[in-house]
């Protein structure tokens, strides 16, 4: 007797999706390179060595060295810790802000909905990147502020999504039944609405990790993100752009790392969406 477990079925569907599997493989490889960085390279990502500056890729330095003679591969591996951490933490912040607001908005409706939706409208009209940029302009640069700014920038997307979910879930019979039994609204939100929203929220979170990595690295690229000498993919790309005329590998490799990570998260997100909830297809 096998019980139809939706998660098992979804994972099977995901395993059949070649693009999603490719995404998982890329993230696994990136995750390994990043986690095992100290074991895989003997170079210190911060250690300057001006005598070996701007060396093109070679056996000694597979991706070359930067303008300060630092090994680019080592910097990309260590930088990945920061870039991926920002992506995951910023999405967590966005969810922590957006999901409760969105659920309250959709579940209660009325003036609560109106106020929260106007706030979401305002945030959306800044657009994600500009909102993050404006916040960094005020809060200042650096790792912590980049995570906060990027998370807040993406938050309105989660307000919208969670609101839509709550709107449809509150019409469900089991929610009405719970209301009839006198279960409190907050309990219903927690036990029924939030739990049944998890699937689309996970899909959306995966798709948004890519966006937050792009936004955070974009701040770094402008020089308004994680500050040198700390390696971070966007900051490295921004520093490398000055050398595109004679040492283009300074810019191409960090950018490739950003692109691969974002692409992989998008492929996994698309795959999860198709596997878990085909109705979500945009």
């Amino acid at each position: 007797m096998s019980v139809r477990r939706p998660w098992v079925q979804a994972l099977r569907a995901l395993a059949r999706n070649r693009a999603a599997v490719a995404g998982i493989v890329v993230i696994a490889i990136l995750g390994f390179l990043v986690a095992a960085a100290p074991l895989l390279t003997s170079y210190d990502p911060m250690q300057q060595n001006l005598s070996s500056a701007l060396r093109p890729p070679s056996a000694e330095h597979p991706l070359g060295t930067d303008n300060l003679g630092r090994d680019i591969l080592a910097r990309i591996m260590f930088g990945g810790r920061i870039s991926l951490l920002i992506g995951v933490l910023a999405v967590s912040i966005a969810m922590a802000i957006g999901v409760p607001l969105g659920l309250l908005s959709g579940y209660f409706g009325g003036w609560v909905d109106m106020v929260i939706q106007r706030i979401a409208d305002m945030m959306l009209s800044f657009t994600t990147f500009l909102l993050a940029l404006a916040l960094v302009a005020v809060l200042g640069v650096g790792l912590r502020n980049v995570i906060i700014a990027t998370g807040v920038g993406v938050a309105p997307q989660f307000i919208r999504l969670a609101r839509g979910l709550a709107l449809s879930l509150r019409e469900q019979a089991y929610v009405e039944a719970a209301t009839g039994f006198g279960v409190s609204d907050l309990m219903i939100l927690w036990r029924h609405v939030l739990r049944n929203s998890l699937t689309p929220l996970i899909v959306y979170a995966t798709l948004n990790i890519g966006i937050t990595i792009i936004v955070a690295a974009g701040l770094g690229f402008l020089g308004l993100g994680v500050q040198p000498p700390t390696p971070e993919w966007g900051t490295m790309l921004g520093e490398g752009r000055d050398y595109i005329f004679h040492a283009s590998y300074l810019a191409t490799f960090p950018g490739l790392a950003i692109f691969l990570a974002v692409l992989a998260f998008n492929l996994i997100g698309d795959g999860l969406r198709d596997a878990l909830d085909p109705n979500l297809r945009a």
Binding site: G218, L237, T252, V262
Partner: peptide, 15 residues
């Protein structure tokens, strides 16, 4: 299409 939404504009521009 998936490359288009995944590639950062600043990297594409530099390439």
């Amino acid at each position: 299409a998936v490359i288009g939404v995944s590639i950062p504009v600043y990297w594409l521009g530099i390439l």
